[in-house]
């Protein structure tokens, strides 16, 4: 086909319009490559159409490109690394978010475990203190038990003389017991049956000879209030025939105040 005839056919105008089939498009392209005058004609037509179309543009749209760039996350970097840079930058952003999220979770976990640790430590402190106080109690209980066992073994000794002391006029409900170990010249007093002495007063223990009535002070019970089992031991080297307990002013008296005789008991005659 004559090339001028080909150009004059109007196919190139339709080519620029995009009105041809895919097959026809390839044919025109082949002709363009073969004949420079066809290419020249196509460029002219295209130029005319773009100018015509642009003449309809009543607004300047060059600023839209900024929005396009923003939407596509485009940077002004050079071509060659562009296709790589964009996806990596996107991925990095995801890693950035994930990284921050992980850091926040990690920090929260750290704070939580520090708080947890502190509260556990204080709990340990409490438990340790409790254990100490329990230990002390066990120690005390052991001591008490030892003392009680000692007392029991003393009371069971066959040489012990047991003297019950009965309540007297000033306090009829009172009672007491004296366990007298003649061998070791000591007595044990069980004063559980006596009321608490009023402030400024103490109980005083007396060894008595009956004929004639001669009282000898064995001592005052200064620790009555603080002692829990109310068992006291005193020395007694006298040939006692009876024991009495009076309430005396703090510090004790030279001779018993008989009006304040709480309990009194006579030693049974030795068999």
């Amino acid at each position: 086909m004559d090339i001028n005839e080909y150009i004059a056919s109007g196919i190139l105008e339709l080519y620029v319009a995009g009105a041809l089939s895919e097959e026809e498009n390839e044919e025109v392209y082949a002709m363009m490559l073969k004949h420079p005058e066809v290419t020249k004609e196509v460029l002219s037509i295209e130029n005319a159409i773009t100018t015509l179309a642009a003449a309809m543009a009543n607004k300047d749209t060059s600023a839209i490109f900024e929005a396009i760039k923003e939407e596509l996350n485009l940077t002004d970097e050079d071509a060659d690394d562009e296709p790589k840079v964009i996806p990596i930058a996107k991925r990095n952003q995801i890693f950035l978010y994930v990284g921050w999220a992980a850091a926040i979770i990690f920090a929260a976990g750290l704070v939580f475990s520090v708080v947890q640790n502190n509260s556990l430590e204080s709990e340990i402190e409490v438990v340790r203190a409790e254990r100490e106080s329990l230990k002390e109690k066990i120690y005390e209980a052991n001591n008490d038990l030892t003392a009680a066992n000692e007392l029991l073994s003393v009371l069971r000794t066959k040489d012990i003389i047991s003297v019950p002391l009965g309540g007297q006029a000033v306090s009829p409900e009172s009672y007491a017991k004296v366990y007298w170990d003649k061998k070791s010249n000591s007595i044990y007093l069980d004063l559980k049956g006596l009321p608490e002495p009023p402030p400024g007063k103490v109980y005083q223990v007396w060894s008595l000879k009956l004929n004639p009535l001669t009282p000898t002070s064995l001592g005052t019970i200064d620790e009555f209030l603080t002692d829990t089992d109310k068992v006291f031991d005193l020395e007694n080297a006298n040939e006692s025939e009876a024991f009495g307990i009076t309430l005396e002013p703090a510090g004790g008296s030279e001779s018993p105040t008989l009006e304040q005789l709480y309990t009194l008991g006579v030693v049974a005659s030795t068999p």
Partner: peptide, 10 residues
């Protein structure tokens, strides 16, 4: 951009 905008606006 002008041509394309013109065509679209048309």
């Amino acid at each position: 951009n002008d041509s394309i905008f013109g065509v679209i606006n048309n």
